[in-house]
Design a protein around this nucleic acid. Structure first.
Lengths: 185, 185
DNA sequence: GAAAATCACTTGCACCATGAAGCAATCTGC
DNA sequence: GCAGATTGCTTCATGGTGCAAGTGATTTTC
């Protein structure tokens, strides 16, 4: 899944106006006005195309998916380049099964090593190896450059600031409990 | 795939400063400054969580994925509720093989019908059935309500306008040839 | 007007994501 | 201190995605 939606141009108005009679009228929803529709359309396009554009850059230049990069990056900035699987999953905003498989792949490639936590055998510690660190170091510049060129170069400084606020407001609505303001976890 | 990336907090600076010596120095990339990092972090969160939040609403309330909704919606606003597969694919920003399978599923559910174009046997016309139209009519309000509550309710009018401009600038960078400004196709 | 190229679409295959069940280590109630 | 519940992680099965090859219809070329 993970895809995004439209509500394109005159669509929303027409659809319901046509055959709302026989249906249970859901108390006349508040449709999007023209400005909102344009904003939604612009946002939806970005939601669909920006992730794959960034993914493509990483895949092409480093042979890894964005999610894999994120896991490596998460470990690279952790103390001792080590994190428990659960923490890492939270960092990467992923479920455990997915992380488990990805870390398994990264382990096969020699970038990550798994060891049981000596203080509690239930935990698994994922550690970035030397090769993994080197991989991150060599991958990061290209990735940052892609983010810069696709996102920040076309925006003014003021717009980047606006974007911060906009993104945070939306995130607070989606998940108020999430530490998405750069706060610690 | 289709996932999004981070470049979290102090990460970008530290990573490279540490071991750039032995690598070929990629002419000292321009890192993100503090404001940019915060903006990127906010945007990345939205890119990861908003699509799945919207998908979840549709899946829960209507039993369809967002992509399926998009296909149905695209047909519902087309003349005669009919579109050629290629046009529909462009509308849904998807490749043809994916669309072909999804339309196959929608056809099995009775919402879409496929017929060869009488004027050119290569084309396939996808048509929304009566049931398909009803499905869209009953699904749209909840979906629009989700978009409104997750995106526009938390934003000011001015921010919504800013968002339009921001999104368009980013899209122009990703794909300058795309008609993503609401223009016709 | 027939061979070749092109076009629109479908199918097959490999990969990855998601959810349910499984397994092992630890904690809790008696 | 031992059975049962809980926690953390892994594995398995299903289903969707994306790419490359395949099919059938139309246009082009000579």
């Amino acid at each position: 899944m993970v895809q995004v939606i439209f509500t394109r141009r005159r669509f929303t108005h027409e659809v319901l106006r046509a055959t709302l009679g026989p249906m249970e009228t859901p108390e006349e929803p508040r449709w999007l006005d023209e400005e909102e529709r344009q904003a939604w359309f612009a946002l939806a396009s970005v939601l669909m195309r920006l992730p794959s554009a960034l993914d493509a850059q990483l895949q092409r230049d480093a042979g890894i998916s964005h999610f894999e990069y994120q896991v490596l990056a998460g470990l690279s900035e952790a103390p001792d380049r080590t994190l428990r699987m659960t923490k890492l999953a939270k960092f990467a905003e992923s479920a455990l099964p997915r992380l488990s498989q990805v870390v398994g792949r990264l382990e096969k490639r020699g970038w990550v090593r798994r060891t049981p936590d000596p203080t509690d055998g239930r935990y698994t510690l994922a550690t970035l190896t030397g090769d993994g660190w080197a991989k991150v170091v060599q991958t990061a510049p290209g990735h940052v450059a892609a983010v810069r060129s696709l996102v920040f170069d076309p925006l003014t400084k003021a717009q980047a600031r606006q974007l911060t606020d906009i993104g945070r407001r939306i995130m607070r609505t989606i998940d108020p409990d999430d530490r998405c303001l750069g706060g610690p976890n």
